[in-house]
Design a protein around this nucleic acid. Structure first.
Length: 872
RNA sequence: GCGGACGUGGCGGAACUGGUAGACGCACAGGACUUAAAAUCCUGAGUUCGAAAGAGCGUGUGGGUUCGAGUCCCACCGUCCGCACCA
């Protein structure tokens, strides 16, 4: 009896309900089997899920379901990264409260995620904007403050003029705010910081332990931390030229070996020496002002021409008291790296060379590159920064650059200026402390109080939480907390006098730096339940977008360590995510109307194929242009709504398509044809299982004593597919797993019309294996098929079948036969055949004899079970 | 500029530690079923020459190592990504 077409949308709801009723995916800390914590980066509740979420969560779900089937105690939670700017902007636009907007979005998106049939433990759901979450974050902040890991300082910060808030360095991309896209300005403000730099070395070194992270991400983090080994070198200033109170200038260099190539010194416009000199030189003061103005936008800095101003100050070369070097103020020297002062060796550094040429300063080659001729070697317009042999460098001459570094360092360390050594070794980092103050409402309030008498005082733990006021106003720009009439007024916890609350809130990246810890015990009364955290952490497989390679992933690595060091129960664990996978984006073609407006894919009709493809705007009937394939985005309207796809095709179809074809780390192009293909496959599986259930052996029948060769062959195919698919899911090679399932399905369809001894039983076994192979990817269809096969258990609860090792190897193997490296034929032979037998069989092949043309055989190479190459 | 990744049919891609290149999917062509369409099933296909058997060429380009290279080495070209005055 052939059944109806599989009605995915209807049946999916049924099975989702069945899982929910059975509590299938609720994780228990006391569960059996080894633990496995699978996590996808939690979403920002923007309003609706998009295809990128579908892909991300489909991947995580396949992995989680597979691990469950393999007997692991799986934790697979979901929550909401719910604080942040869009809620506040929406509040301004719609005259509502950010919380109202956010919670409505969470409801909508939760419904959407549920329609995907994800194996999530919703009992652990959390939202970072919920006071039950952020009160613990405030407690953590206080602990970090106690440890000196959170502190306040005045510094130049990135100011986003559109969002009216400060941004961390990591959140400035190409000189623009990561969210608003506005050109970022530099402002001097007093802000809260986390001391991530205390972990520079550890964060860098431990990257080496993250062998299940993408190399690319580790490299990006290593570059961001930016460790360099160099020296601090103090230069005496010529007293006749130095401003009062300044007798020396300390610089940072990674190339003390090139000291004899010194041409000039350069200091930042904000360097104390520059400020002192500017007091006596109005032109210099004007130059410094100009530099600062240029520095207002990061984008300007990148294109600005190198400029300098000779301060008239002369510095004395550390190795030659008669050698004077000019000191410039230069617009390219940064005050907050090293000491804000450099010595320049133009022959070895392009930027210094450009500057030297511009201001007609000396250029002395000091490194002779390997293979260059000392007599003819000159520096033109290109600096030479590689290794080589030292020249024009007195006591360093003839040494390699590496040896010269050591020699110069030794001499600088032993020589003195005044009483202290002339130089000392110093490791520098590019990484800066993490500025977390945001002048916005919709974030976690920083639990601090400003008292005129006592200074900055932490809110006592017993007074937590510091809750956001509900009655804030969003009608004008600026910080609603700051202008709230009463909220910031409080009593100083120390002296009791009237004081003022801190009105800055925390960067939302703080929220996401520990949510994975909170998932292990979301209802604990303390921020961390040590027992649960020790059991579940670290996350065994983390999946998310590459865009967080630095931001979220570096912050989390820091925060997890800081929490441990502040006594929050995770001290024995240093890395939060033992394996990381970064998935590619979902892309789609773009369409434009005649007037140049972007069109949704649903607004155009496509015709023809290949080069001849055309698009018509449905509403107007006019021709539309087919544009390039881009990441799905609202601005380009190349969006496909997951709701539409799931309602029409079902979640399984959408999931299957997201996992097919493209390797998961690469971008995938969403196409209508691709979805149709996936939809066809869903029906094909259903028909196949339906037919086998009708004709095949009864549920639970034992294997017949004797099987035909067809039946054995089918069993081999099934068990090989089982083995290979498991390995590919394990290594997240979903596209290959999908291809193997297709191949297996083709073999199964091919065997269906045949009839021989034991074949019905083998068909049934293969069908059951097939259902379990698709279960992680198309879980609803798997349940439907499982039930059709006569079971009243849930497929989701079935253990992953075990492949029979005896079926994984063939008795006879096909070997390619080459003559002089060219494939001429192939031969099928017993797997256990000896090399002699293989050689004999190969030489007997007609194609081989023909290719040899009677030439004598020089040698024969036999690779068992693979290839034989006859060399003549 | 510095650092990194990648380059395979019409398209997405597969190919374990060097061993039958193009699995699987999409698109395509031919056929079956049907009054017809949809759905489904079967067959074909890297390319050139050939009716076929078969042969030549073929993984960005040029060289090299090897019995054998998509895979290893060198140089170059192209695409993409990250960082970017970091001393």
């Amino acid at each position: 009896m052939a059944s109806e077409r599989y009605n995915a949308p209807a049946r999916e709801k049924h099975w989702q309900q069945a899982w929910e009723n059975a509590g299938t995916f609720t994780a228990k800390t006391s569960g059996s089997g080894p633990k496995c914590y699978v996590l996808e980066m939690f979403p920002y509740p923007s309003g609706r899920i998009h295809m990128g979420h579908v892909r991300n969560y489909a991947m995580g779900d396949v992995f989680a379901r597979y691990k469950r089937a393999k007997g692991f105690n799986v934790l697979h939670p979901m929550g909401w990264d719910a604080f942040g700017m869009p809620a506040e902007n929406a509040a301004i636009e719609r005259k509502t409260h950010p919380g109202t907007w956010t919670y409505a979005n969470i409801d909508a998106m939760k419904r959407q995620l549920k329609s995907m049939g994800l194996s999530l433990d919703w009992s652990r759901e959390l939202a970072t904007c919920n006071v039950d979450y952020y009160k613990h974050q405030q407690a953590i902040f206080l602990k970090l403050f106690d440890k000196g890991l959170a502190y306040r300082k005045s510094s130049k910060v990135n100011w986003d003029p559109v969002d009216h808030t400060v941004l961390a360095n990591e959140q400035v991309i190409d000189g623009r705010g990561w969210r608003s896209g506005a050109l970022v300005e530099q402002r001097e403000l007093t802000q809260w910081f986390f001391k991530i730099t205390a972990y520079s070395d550890e964060l860098l070194n431990d990257l080496g332990t993250l062998d299940k992270w993408p190399e690319k991400v580790r490299l990006m983090q290593a570059n961001w931390i930016g460790r360099s080994e160099g020296m601090l070198v103090r230069w005496a200033l010529d007293a006749r030229t130095a401003p009062p109170g300044h007798s020396e200038l300390e610089i940072y260099t990674t190339r003390p070996d090139t000291l004899f190539g010194a041409s000039f010194m350069a200091i930042a416009p904000d360097h104390p020496l520059a400020k002192a000199a500017a007091e006596q030189d109005p032109k210099l003061a004007a130059f410094c002002d100009e530099c600062r103005r240029m520095g207002t936008s990061v984008a300007d800095v990148e294109t600005a021409e190198k400029q300098g101003y000779d301060t008239g100050i002369r510095a004395v070369h550390p190795f030659d008291k008669d050698w004077r070097v000019r000191v410039y103020v230069a617009n390219f020297v940064l005050m907050d790296y090293g000491t804000g002062a450099i010595f320049a060796c133009p022959s070895g550094d392009q930027r210094d060379l450009d500057f030297a040429r511009k201001y007609k300063l000396p250029v002395t080659p000091v490194v002779l590159p390997l293979g260059a001729d000392a007599k003819t070697f000159v520096i033109g317009d290109t600096a030479v920064d590689g290794d080589g042999t030292m020249i024009n460098s007195r006591f360093l001459d003839g040494l390699t650059t590496t040896a010269a570094f050591e020699e110069a360092a030794k001499r600088l360390e032993t020589a003195t200026l005044g009483k202290a050594p002339l130089g000392q070794r110093k490791v520098n980092y590019r990484l800066r402390d993490w500025g977390i103050s945001r002048q916005r409402y919709w974030g976690c309030p920083i639990p601090m109080i400003h008292c005129e008498v006592c200074g900055v005082v932490p809110v006592p733990a017993k007074d937590l939480p510091v809750q956001l006021p509900e009655d804030a106003t969003f009608d004008k720009p600026g910080n609603p907390l700051d202008r709230h009439p009463t909220w910031k007024q409080c009593a100083c916890p120390q002296c009791g006098k009237p004081a003022r609350r801190e009105t800055d809130t925390m960067d939302t990246f703080v929220d996401s730096s520990w949510y994975y810890v909170r998932f292990t015990a979301p209802d604990a009364t303390t921020p961390v339940d040590t027992k649960a955290a020790d059991y579940w952490l670290p996350v065994d497989q983390y999946i998310g977008g590459i865009e967080h390679a630095i931001l979220h992933l570096l912050y989390s690595r820091f925060f997890y360590r800081a929490m441990g060091d502040a006594g929050l129960g995770t001290k024995n664990l240093r890395e939060p995510f033992s394996a990381l996978f970064t998935q590619g984006m979902v892309t789609h073609e773009t369409y434009k109307s005649e007037s140049g407006a972007w069109l949704l894919p649903t607004e155009v009709e496509l015709k023809g194929e290949g080069e001849a493809r055309t698009a018509i705007e449905i509403a107007s009937g006019n021709a539309a242009t087919i544009g390039s394939v881009e990441k799905m985005s609202k601005s380009k309207k190349n969006l496909v709504d997951p709701d539409d796809i799931i309602a029409h095709w079902g979640a399984d179809c959408a999931r299957w398509f997201m996992l097919s074809d493209s390797p998961p780390e690469r971008d995938v192009i969403w196409t209508e044809a691709g979805v149709q293909g996936a939809g066809r496959f869903v029906q094909r599986i259903w028909r196949l299982v339906d037919e086998i259930a009708d004709k095949g052996a009864p549920t639970g029948a034992a294997m017949p004593a004797s099987l035909s060769s067809d039946a054995t062959e089918l069993r081999r195919t099934a068990h090989k597919a089982l083995d290979a698919t498991g390995r590919n899911i394990e290594s997240l090679r979903f596209n290959v797993a999908v291809a193997q399932i297709y191949e297996f399905t083709n073999a199964l369809s091919g065997a269906l019309p045949k009839s021989s001894e034991g074949l019905d039983w083998a068909l049934r076994e293969a069908a059951e294996i097939l259902v379990q192979l698709i279960a992680p990817m198309m879980p609803h269809l798997a349940e439907e098929c499982w039930a059709r096969l006569g079971y009243n258990t849930l497929a989701a609860n079935q253990p992953w079948p075990k492949a029979d090792p005896a079926l994984l190897v063939d008795d006879r193997v096909t070997i390619a036969v080459q003559v002089n490296g060219k494939r001429r034929d192939e031969l099928t032979i017993e797997r256990t055949a000896s090399n002699q037998e293989i050689e004999a069989a190969a030489l007997g092949l007609e194609a081989v004899v023909r290719a040899l043309e009677g030439k004598p055989v020089k040698k024969i190479i036999v690779v068992p079970q693979r290839i034989v190459n006859v060399v003549a």
